[in-house]
Design a protein around this nucleic acid. Structure first.
Lengths: 415, 415
DNA sequence: CTCTTTAATTCGAGGCTCGAAAAAAATAGT
DNA sequence: ACTATTTTTTTCGAGCCTCGAATTAAAGAG
């Protein structure tokens, strides 16, 4: 709510509808009385809002899953999001792999498909074509009672312009400036969100643990590349001009190791999978990075680092220093916010923690010593998936089902 | 407007009152018709809101300053903020100097006082005592028609906890954890804001040039120390735990020059006034920093740097590198946001610009080349003053005069 | 002195939330 | 078996809000 925004009476209803939907989404099954308790709205208002939502088919009374029986008064009737009111699709685009999933409005998976694509040789049209093929398949195969497709979220490895739903650049494919948003939105007649996978991870974390990941926090993805998703003031920070939060490409060592982005000395050039591999395979730090590092190789290196003190352990220590110095800058700039480390790098946190903390700890200094909050999530894929799903569902909750329209936006249904 | 907030019908009026007040604050003199055009509200609503504001004495009809006469229809009647409805006080606390000013609700200066204090020897009570003495003086001397004191804003050189209105640490005085907010609020019975002077500068810039300094931007103060004020998502970023935005204490050279904060290699240790002096006076970079650098000495060094290529020019080049590397990190993390350089360092931008741009320019790389926006404001004091003033006035506009209360908060009047 | 033009207010319609009262739907007790 | 009690949910009126249309106010033009 900004100073230059005008408020209308129906904004109140819209906001309170959002509130009710958000409460139902978090708790799953709630009676009207529960909603009153959770939101602070009056029973009359909750009644008015829920009857409207029911008549629009957005939520439904759930008879089977009764909350508490055998009590004295009139029994509560449980409400829940109506899974059949909409379908959303998520697309995760990674090196040589496209992963598409369909969810219902309740967030339950309907159908899923993996597809191997040689992304490095693929033109933009090939990628779009592959994605459309998968989505067509999935949409055709779903049960007849499923809701119509209403939103698509894409998480991509690469730099995105969220406002224009475009992938500006990506290491996984030669073409740049691919407007997935335009293509999919035209094909399926729905709104499309395109963001870096790190932003999706941040979205997922906020959903999983809203107590801990509240207003401001960062998700740092340590895998083949290094990226960051930022939440500031309770909203994903997607950057003004292009993509923001290029944590991996902050300067660590001036004129240092060669980074995949072509520059020298980035954090990524010391802490990413390919940096670890390059260093432990005896290559020069200016050597061209490998295009891919498979998990087995990486784990082998990590295990060797754990068993003996050699090149491998040193490599992880270097990585810890690089990440630590990045975190120090982050903390200096925008506060010691909670940080989540995600991906292969999080699986080897034991190997990098000491060096990392050493560098970071010299940050705090004024007043109370800050305890820094770093949590690890070794597997990024479930988070990316969940983040995409939540991006779509929250879009429906807050943008589409917020006003009392329930379908005033004409949507072409394809397949 | 967050997802877990409940909306009430009166919130609409509150927000639209804010909107009207903000419009009047920016344009000074406006008819009701102008307000309709500016805000988009309907004439009826503007009429309702303005009559309420007038009856509460917050705004007033201004007969003298008629907008446009000699036109055909009924003449417009100009509205303006009522200067006499409130007084706000600002306090700027710097090394050996306290500067206190009184403004009326329209933002016109009522009275001003400078006071030299040996801040380095002063205990916290001495500082508070000095400030209160000055404020007492100023409040006593002001004209009888002035409004009662309703808010105080302090801008301090040091690390603050804005939420608790406390100065956690400052280079200008030995005591730490001084709760100016509590002390002044108890003494004068009004709300008090305490923030780093850089935050005040950011607030001022946003007021001066809202087109340029919009949602996200940074103000970097380059003077004896180096600090930063950040605006994110249209709101000042004051940090969650303590103060945020310690740009000056980002790491530039590991184990490098000694910083005033006791650590080594901070940007400040290369680019602040004392860093320039230390380097050009032949001292080692690990030597203890000077406590103060007077403007004359600094200007002399800058002039020598401009006339001949020697130690001085090299010092400024080093400073440019340090600031540049900090900006590169900033841009990597949160976008190429507009940046304002403020203070003595901005006066010598010609001496640091080349090195700075050299380092920064390697940042952008994806897609479109970003043109970076850096503007210079050599004199920080007017900005700090204006920022304090705007902080207080906006507090009144949005927090105090927003609901239809006009004085339901009982306020003890001292003096 | 009347006509025209522009500004500002007034009034009713249609929302919204909320508190109080009423209705609904179960169990508990005799 | 039937009434009393308890709890949930809905209904209804009061009091906000904004807005459009009609009305009133206050000037210059002719």
């Amino acid at each position: 709510m900004f100073l230059d925004e005008i408020a209308r009476p129906d904004d109140v209803r819209r906001q309170n509808r959002r509130l009710v939907l958000a409460t139902l989404r978090r708790h799953g099954l709630l009676s009207r009385t529960d909603i009153v308790a959770q939101t602070g709205l009056s029973p009359s208002t909750v009644s008015a809002i829920t009857t409207a939502l029911i008549s629009e088919g957005i939520i439904a009374e759930s008879r089977d899953g009764d909350i508490i029986a055998n009590r004295r008064g009139r029994p509560q009737v449980a409400l829940t999001l109506n899974p059949a009111v909409a379908t959303v699709a998520t697309v995760e685009l990674a090196l040589n792999l496209v992963h598409a999933v369909l969810f219902d409005y309740k967030g339950q998976m309907i159908a899923e498909e993996f597809h191997r694509v040689s992304t490095l040789d693929a033109k933009s049209d090939d990628l779009i074509h592959s994605i459309c093929l998968m989505l067509d398949n999935l949409l055709e195969s779903r049960p007849p009672n499923a809701g119509r497709l209403m939103h698509i979220s894409m998480g991509v490895q690469g730099v995105t312009d969220a406002a224009r739903a475009t992938m500006l650049w990506s290491p996984i494919t030669p073409d740049s400036n691919i407007s997935f948003g335009d293509a999919l939105s035209k094909r399926y007649g729905v709104a499309v969100a395109v963001a870096n996978d790190c932003n999706m991870i941040a979205e997922a974390l906020r959903w999983i643990d809203p107590e801990h990941y509240a207003e401001d926090f960062a998700a740092i993805l340590l895998s083949h590349g290094i990226g960051m998703g930022l939440y500031l003031k309770g909203k994903p920070f997607l950057g003004a001009h292009s993509s923001a939060a290029e944590f991996g490409h902050m300067l660590h060592v001036p004129n240092g190791a060669l980074c995949r982005c072509g520059r020298h000395g980035c954090i990524e050039a010391y802490a990413s999978d390919y940096a670890i591999l390059r260093r432990t395979s005896g290559q020069d730090e200016k050597a061209q990075p490998a295009q891919d590092v498979d998990a087995a190789t990486y784990n082998e290196i990590a295990n060797r680092a754990r068993t003996r003190d050699g090149e491998e352990r040193a490599a992880f220590r270097k990585a810890g220093q690089a990440i630590g110095s990045g975190l120090r800058s982050l903390y200096s700039l925008i506060d010691p916010i909670p940080v989540a480390l995600v991906g292969s790098g999080a699986a080897v946190f034991d190997l990098i923690e000491d060096e990392l903390r050493d560098i970071v700890s010299s940050t705090s200094g004024w007043g109370a010593a800050q305890e820094l909050s770093i949590r690890c999530y070794p597997d990024e894929h479930p988070l990316i998936l969940q983040g995409c799903m939540m991006t779509s569902l929250l879009h429906l909750d807050t943008q589409v089902f917020a006003p009392g329209d329930a379908g005033d936006t004409p949507i072409k249904r394809a397949i």
